[in-house]
Structures are given as structure tokens and as C-alpha cells.
Design a protein around this nucleic acid. Structure first.
Lengths: 313, 313
DNA sequence: CAACTTATACTCAGTCGTAGCATAAGGAGA
DNA sequence: TCTCCTTATGCTACGACTGAGTATAAGTTG
């Protein structure tokens, strides 16, 4: 009805937004601009050969970083979320990119920000962060009380699943669901904007412009899901590495520790890597064998079914 | 470079395209318009509250079918693929919708077309279709020969993975990869358009306008992947059903048969369904118990991790 | 040399996927 | 009515994989 009656211009602004991930100094990071307040982004223009090409252009232009592997994430267009930023309505097509931070001294340093500055509740490598029990759950509980009838039970249920309440396991993949819950409960800064209540949000975690933090959450969730069944960690690792370094990278992304022995067994039985024949003494204790990814794996990554399940520590 | 130099209008046409799936008479089908030649679609307009709302409007307007569950699929913008259809460049945001075909006699009949009319090579319920060995693989083999050097080996590899050559298993999820291979090898009608070579394509399978068949492939692939870890079949089933009916629906979607006993065990141990207490005699042999989905499952479907693995027959 | 760190090998129980055997309960035709 | 066919449903066995623990090897540091 409204679609056909309303005769308006059918043209819209289309933005490309990039979540570019790398593991640096044992931390999972995202490439940002404006001192961490935004993701690299720019409009899709007629000069771009494709969406991907446009995205690469913008990222390289804004950060100086060339992109390797990228994949599409999601297309957003919620009027509510963007209304305050742009008078006009816009569509954001988001992508996930994976790289290493291969900076040369001649390049300006890039603005890599740790994921967990934006999502402090997502890093469970040293156990569940205390802010979950101290700040998040109490506020969410209060939020369930606000609702009545079936809505209250539904909220309780969503919270229990997302944050692993009452003996439910923590599921590291539900990054977006958790952020959305906090947004709906108005516990993050983005939810308070333009409401005249610009007070400090009750839950720590750095905000971003527009819905960039939501897009970042989408990218993290996708990556956490994907490492389990596709060999994508490769894109984030240097050409040669030890198994523990690989494990630390996976742990950084997943935000949880894994069982070392089982991790190695998994890696080796999947035939993802091969020994280079050399060892490194830089790791502290007994020298570790160095590995590289098997070329066949790099080729098959499009379709091969590889599982790199994040087993518990 | 090109992005910043080219000062062009930053507005684009944005189309919404729907893959709406249902299982009717044991066949997986898609809701189409124009006698099966196109998917329901229309431009995203300023009057639409959201992308999803816009999509619902268009589908209902064009087919009379209201949509229940929908999820976003992918956003396409390849200039090559759409060039012939629209002079102007357009972006297509595609969605997957799941429904039952609850037609009332007063409504006009909807245009439900079987998936396998468009992708005859995807239905392995009665074994691998003969066209794979008879038509597809020979043509693809010829196509590998056209390439030289590493490209040839890469093509061979992709074909082997996608179609399950040399003892590799058939992977029903690779619907899109298979279609893309056939497209690249110019074995489907869409690839021949506007090239002046409008001859009959070498591989059977009904074409669609623009890149709608590619979008349909994307939707089928997504659904085949998703039934394995999320309880989405529900959306496609009537409120009450026998376990064999549920199995047949899964088989129709996956395009392959499953082991009956294991399927039942899986379903029951996941506690997805509960008995209604009644039985039906309409199935031929021994009367079958009737089941319904447990209400809790319908609620949790957003986040619950349910596996409905398609075990072999 | 002792204490500590990291690497790596091996074991074991529980779960899950695959597959086969067996029985129950209806209908159709001899 | 009896037999055969069809579908439904229960149960068992086995191998692969997962989660978690034990033990040993080979370095560095004080």
C-alpha cells in the first residue's frame, strides 16, 4: 500500500562499511578511523567496478591498508538508527576483511583498536568478565521487570541464552544478540542518542558513530562462527608460526581459551598445516616447531569443509 | 582514486528480491511471478519502514502471499550481470522467506515453481541425476581444457569439490558454487545473454530474468545449510504432522535421502517435537503418531543451537 | 642444579553419526 | 482368513570424534 502510493524518488545513498580484523600482540583488533570512533566507510559510487572494489578503495584511501580476503556481512537500513546522523536515509552494506598488520616503517601507523574496548563483556579468556555479573545482568534484570506479561518472560529467555545464565553455556558467537539486547535495554551510549538523555551509559564499552558498533559486532560474530568450519585464520597469521601462536590467535578471536593438546590434535588431523622443518627458540621453554599452511588448503578455502572447533580449555 | 575523482551522483536504485520457499506435494518450491521467470521483487522506497517491511509489501502485492519468517541473504551489485536489463546500475538486496502454502479458495492460485526445474542437477533424492555425468561434467571438463597453467588445475579442483568428483562426497550446500561454475563456463542461458550467441544452453535448467536464478541458488544454499543447525523447518510444516512427513520435507530441501531411524532419534532427542496423542491412518501402513513442534522451540529459534543433521540414507 | 616454561605424546571415557536387525500395526489381494 | 506389502517404531553395535587428564621432553632463568 504505502509502497505504491508514495511516489518518491527511488534513489538512495549506499554506503560501504568495512570491519577489518587482525590479531596484533595477542589482541583481536579492528581497523578504525577518527581515533577509534568509526569504521572505514564511504559511499558506493558509479565509478566503482563492484561493491567489493568500492570497499577496497575506501579502506585503502582512509587507512592506507590494502585488503586481502573480504566477504559480505549484512546490509542495514534501519531508519531509527541512522536518523540522527544523516538527514537522508542511507543503506549500509558491510563487509568483513581479514589481514595481517604488515606495516612498513615508511607507512603511517594504522589505527588498530582492540575489539574488547568496544565489547568488554566479550573477552572470556581470563574467565567471565566481572562487569557481566556486576553491571550488565542487574541492569538487564531491571529491564525485564519493566515489561509485563509474555514480554517479560521472553526478555528473560533472550538474556539467559545470550549471556549464559542458569547453567547455560557461554556461547561466544552471540556477539550481535548481546549488543542488541544492551541496545534495546538502553544500556549502551548509542541507544541514548537524540533522546535528550545524554548521560553516561550504565554499561562500559566504547561507542562508535551511527551504527558502526553494531556492524562491528556483526563482523565479530561472523568471524567467530566462521573459524569453526572454514580455514580463515590463515589470513590473520604470518606465513610461518608455531602451533601455540595459532592457538593464541584463535583464542583471541573466540574470546575463550582452548585445550592445548586437543587443539593440536585437531589441527594436525585436519592436515591444515605442515612443518617447515625449523624450530624457534623465541617462545621461552622448549623450542617449538614452525609450521606453515598447506598450499592445498589455501586453494580449497572457498569450498572445503574444515572444522576448527573451539574446544574448551 | 577513481572513487574520489569521479564526482557523480551518489544515489542508486535499490531493489528488494525475495526467495520464498515452501514444500508442496513433497517438492521444494519457490514463489515466482511472470510464470516462473522471475522472483517477487520491487524497489526499496522511502515510504517503507524498513528493508524487511518493503520486501513484505512487494511480495504481498505481487503474489498475494503474506510472509512470515524472513532473513537477509545477500546484496548484489555486479554491473555485468544486470547491465542488459537496466540501463542504470542497481543494487539487489535479497531475502529468504519460509512459509506454508495456505491458500484459501477465494485467493488466486500462487505461482509456486519447483526448485529443481531451475536446478535439475540439485535433486539427488533418487540418486545423482544423470545429467551430471552425461552433460555437465563433460562440458566442464572441456572448459578446464580451455584454460592453461595453474588456472586449469584450479578449475579442476573447484569442479571436483562442487560436484563431488573422484570419491569426494556430494555436498548439497554448494548450490551457489555449482551455479557459478556453470555460469562461468557459459553452460547456462544467463551467461550467453547479450553476447550475440543466443543458442540453447548446453545444460538443462530453466533460466530467470537478470540474476534471479543466482539469487534463488543463494537462497537454496542458505536454507540447506541452515536446517542443519537451526530449527527452521518448522516454518514450512503444517501445525501437525508425522515424523515421516517431516523427514520428507527435510529431504526435499536437502535434495538427498536420510536414514529414517536415525532421523527420528535425532528429532526426539533434540526435544523439538511432542506427540499430539493422535494418530493418522492416511499414510498407508501402520498408523503414524502425530506430532507438533514444542512451543519452547518456536520461542528459542533465534538463538538456540539445534542440529538437524542430514544423515545419509 | 632447581624451578619454571613451553612442547608434545598418549590414554580414556563419553557422545555422536552411521548402519543394520527386529518387531508392531495397519491395508490389499489371494 | 491368511499372506504379503507398507509404514512405523524400538534397539543394538561400532567407529569416529570430543573433552579432559596424565606423562614426558627440551629448552630458559636464577
Amino acid at each position: 500500500m504505502n509502497a505504491s502510493d508514495t511516489q518518491q524518488r527511488h534513489e538512495l545513498k549506499v554506503d560501504l562499511v568495512a570491519v577489518v580484523a587482525a590479531v596484533i600482540d595477542g589482541d583481536p583488533r579492528a581497523l578504525t578511523i577518527r581515533r577509534g570512533s568509526a569504521l572505514p566507510a564511504g559511499p558506493f559510487e558509479l565509478g566503482h567496478r563492484s561493491l567489493q572494489a568500492g570497499l577496497r578503495d575506501w579502506v585503502e584511501q582512509q587507512t592506507g591498508h590494502p585488503l586481502g580476503y573480504i566477504e559480505q556481512l549484512y546490509t542495514f537500513a534501519d531508519r531509527d538508527r541512522i536518523a540522527e546522523e544523516h538527514a537522508r536515509r542511507a543503506i549500509s552494506i558491510s563487509y568483513l576483511g581479514l589481514t595481517r598488520d604488515e606495516w612498513s616503517a615508511s607507512q603511517p601507523p594504522r589505527d588498530w583498536q582492540s575489539w574488547y574496548g568496544y565489547f568488554p563483556w566479550e573477552d572470556h579468556r581470563a574467565g567471565a568478565p566481572s562487569i557481566i555479573a556486576d553491571a550488565i545482568l542487574p541492569h538487564l534484570k531491571a529491564w525485564t521487570e519493566e515489561a509485563g506479561g509474555t514480554a517479560r518472560e521472553e526478555r528473560r529467555q533472550r538474556i539467559a541464552i545470550a549471556f549464559g545464565v542458569d547453567d547455560r553455556p557461554w556461547n561466544e558467537e552471540l556477539v550481535l544478540q548481546r549488543y542488541e539486547l544492551l541496545y534495546e535495554a538502553a544500556l549502551v551510549e548509542e541507544a541514548l542518542r537524540g533522546r535528550g538523555e545524554e548521560h553516561t551509559p550504565p554499561v562500559p564499552g566504547r561507542p562508535m558513530i551511527a551504527d558502526h558498533r553494531r556492524i562491528l559486532a556483526t563482523g565479530i560474530a561472523r568471524l567467530r562462527t566462521k573459524i569453526k568450519y572454514r580455514p580463515v585464520v590463515f589470513e590473520l597469521m604470518p606465513p610461518v608460526f608455531t602451533l601455540l601462536q595459532l592457538q593464541r590467535a584463535v583464542e583471541a578471536l573466540a574470546g575463550r581459551l582452548v585445550h592445548k593438546q586437543n587443539f593440536r590434535r585437531l589441527i594436525e588431523q585436519q592436515e591444515l598445516v605442515e612443518e617447515t622443518g625449523e624450530t624457534t627458540f623465541e617462545t621461552g621453554g622448549r623450542p617449538a616447531k614452525l609450521f606453515r599452511f598447506r598450499p592445498a588448503v589455501l586453494m580449497e578455502r572457498t569450498a572445503a569443509g574444515t572444522k576448527l572447533s573451539v574446544t574448551r580449555a
